Amino acid sequence: MKNFSWLLVAVLGLSGCMGTKKYASFVEQRVQTEQVAAPQHDALVVNAQAAAQPGHQYKQLERSFIPALVYWGWNSTISCELDPGMAAAAVRSGMYQAADKLNLQDRLGGRQLVVDIRQTPGQFMYENKGNVIFLIFAHITSAQESITPRPTDLVLHYQLLENGAVVASGEGLVKNTQEPLRNLWKSSKKFTWLYLDQFELEAGRMGEESLKDILLQLEGDLSRL
């Protein structure tokens, strides 16, 4: 039992020493930075601005480990920003799925909707911190591993084209509703993968909602065209 306790403490301490290189390997095993070719859709074109810094970005904000005689403490905090191309691809996928569900081609009557993605979600904070206080016959452990998204909203600009001429335009904004996530039983890698899966679902939802909002904005314009 004593050996198991020391092993548990060692695992907790080592996981708290998480650096950007190790954490990047978790992220990049799950997501791809390459932009997947967008599906062809006559009624909808979704563009994304080229990223100033392509690829995933990581910044170590805090990294400490204190292995004292009666106290161990650790804190690893990493700021992460997913590749904008990957985030835009998830948004674009949601928009194209919505276009099919909403029968966009018929609703636009042969016109074309061109959407430019101006801002994408994809920023979050990974944090692993805790401490162990050693007593004579036992130890007290307190640890927390969490991922907190920065609530970056989806910002769009759109134009409705008819025979190549702009007949309507506007802006779109969809709020990011992804919630912080706390790890209870998973490894750090699988916990990160769970968050990334949830992010992809949220980005797709934002894309779908953005197209619905654009169509609501265009209803008056379409009735006059």
Score class of each variant (00 low, 15 high):
Gln112Val: 12
Glu34Tyr: 02
Gln57Asp: 01
Asn47Glu: 12
Met95Pro: 00
Lys21Trp: 14
Ala10Trp: 00
Lys59Ser: 15
Trp74Ile: 05
Lys21Pro: 01
Leu44Ser: 07
Gly16Trp: 00
Val114Gly: 12
Asp100Ala: 09
Asn47Val: 13
Arg111Met: 10
Asp100Val: 04
Cys80Val: 14
Val46Lys: 03
Ala98Tyr: 00
Pro121Asn: 03
Leu108Trp: 00
Ser79Tyr: 08
Pro67Arg: 00
Ala87Cys: 15
Met18Ser: 04
Ala10Gln: 03
Gln35Cys: 13
Pro67Tyr: 03
Ile78Tyr: 10
Gly94Ala: 00
Gly13Val: 03
Ala68Glu: 06
Ala89Cys: 15
Pro67Thr: 06
Glu81Gly: 10
Ala43Glu: 13
Leu44Val: 14
Ser15Pro: 00
Asn75Ala: 13
Ala37Thr: 06
Asn75Ser: 13
Tyr71Pro: 02
Ile78Asn: 11
Pro39Glu: 07
Leu104Ile: 12
Ser93Trp: 04
Ala68Cys: 06
Met95Glu: 01
Asp83Gly: 10
Leu14Thr: 08
Ala48Asn: 08
Pro121Glu: 06
Leu104Ala: 07
Ser64Tyr: 06
Gln49Arg: 09
Val45Tyr: 09
Val27Cys: 09
Thr33Tyr: 03
Ala37Gly: 07
Ala90Phe: 11
Phe65Asp: 07
Arg92Pro: 07
Ala10Glu: 01
Gly94Thr: 04
Gln40Ile: 15
Tyr23Ser: 11
Ala10Val: 01
Asp42Cys: 05
